[in-house]
Design a protein around this nucleic acid. Structure first.
Lengths: 210, 210
DNA sequence: TTATATTTTGCTGATTTATGCAGTTTTTAT
DNA sequence: ATAAAAACTGCATAAATCAGCAAAATATAA
């Protein structure tokens, strides 16, 4: 097999599978690993693929690797946009906490006149930035892990409320120091919220649904 | 699995869920926790995520607070230091809001075990950063100008409390321009706080006293 | 064609990298 | 305060890489 042929095969292979192992190529083409390594090095110099220890990665894989951080954010934003469009003037809106809810808060139009009720401190801060939104805080003990208020009093208050719509984020847990979490109380609060609302919207990125 | 591949997976995972546990990654990728830890360390060095004890957090949602815009920040800090020294372990502490109170929150020693009760959203966020502090939120309507909860329910709740000490910041009140309706409510809340506490401390920088 | 020059390939041994393991220290939770 | 979990350290091992060299293949010129 000619050198050029071999390199074409390697390129095809790496683009097909996103990655190749030097050992695999060596056995399948039946040349020494050194040759493969030299080929990979050349192709890497020619910017045709990314050489890594043990094999190589396709160019596209690398770029997605770099952009992946924005990707998740973008999809969160588009979800938030759609969710925000469900809210109409004069509504009473119940929300939990979490990053998706924060994005929702940021996606709210300036012109919206509505009342938001929440136990989430970060969400409340976001709502405050909107000139035409009334914010009502549900008081009680603050859960460090989820940054929302939890407890019997909070649940009691929620039960007294009749909201038009309720938004629940699936990723309500966000912590800075330590990652353990007692979700139970948070779940109780969410349950109460759902029961107090005419409509419930659950915000989630599709990849999360396993 | 290639190292780069694994790191890409980790990055994708952390951006999707906002947090990852080393143990989870270890079992799902089937490598030792040491390897995961090394990966997380590398990604953290490369500024791709934030490493914490037990796992890592997504970089995208890291709130950074700028206190540069706050007036006379240094003198407030020294006041805060003195005020913080008045709080002892096991105390129930009532606080209002305002920049001076925020500084007080930041001046609290890590070791302090106490319960803080507040209607201020920014203050609550600060208290959350302290590992040994319980936070209780007073719920009600949120006043946009002062960022604290005001209203009959809030006052009712405060009256039920017996606190050891109460900190009130003076900066929420603009004496020169008279009291607006909104400020009036804030004053009512402060009054209630003062009545519910054995000791009251008023935080002020000297320039404020006309 | 033959002789010579050039490129390519494989091999050997030294070097680097990746990973896991054991023991110790630090952090966190109870 | 104490126990458990996580992190760090140093080390061992196996795999991958590198450097140089010699054989093999290929190209080139007389």
């Amino acid at each position: 097999m000619l050198k050029k042929e071999r390199q074409a095969f390697i390129l095809h292979s790496v683009n097909l599978h996103n990655k190749v192992l030097s050992t695999d190529l060596s056995t399948s083409i039946n040349v020494s690993e050194d040759t493969i390594r030299r080929d990979l090095h050349e192709l890497s110099e020619a910017n045709k693929l990314i050489k890594v220890h043990g094999g190589a990665l396709s160019k596209s894989f690398h770029s997605s690797f770099n952009n992946s951080s924005v990707y998740a954010i973008e999809s969160k934003k588009s979800i938030a946009q759609k969710a925000a469009s469900l809210i109409q003037d004069g509504m009473f809106v119940l929300t939990s906490g979490g990053t998706t809810i924060i994005e929702l808060a940021r996606a709210l139009p300036e012109s919206l006149h509505a009342t938001f009720i929440t136990g989430s401190i970060p969400a409340a801060l976001e709502y405050l930035h909107h000139p035409n939104i009334e914010v009502i805080i549900i008081g009680d003990k603050l859960s460090k892990s989820s940054q929302i208020t939890v407890g019997a009093q909070a649940i009691e208050k929620i039960k007294q409320i009749r909201a038009d719509i309720c938004f629940v984020g699936t990723n309500a847990i966000e912590v800075e120091h330590g990652l353990t979490d007692n979700d139970w109380e948070v779940v109780q609060v969410k349950k109460a919220m759902i029961e107090s609302s005419k409509k419930v919207v659950s915000l989630a990125i599709s990849e999360k649904i396993n």
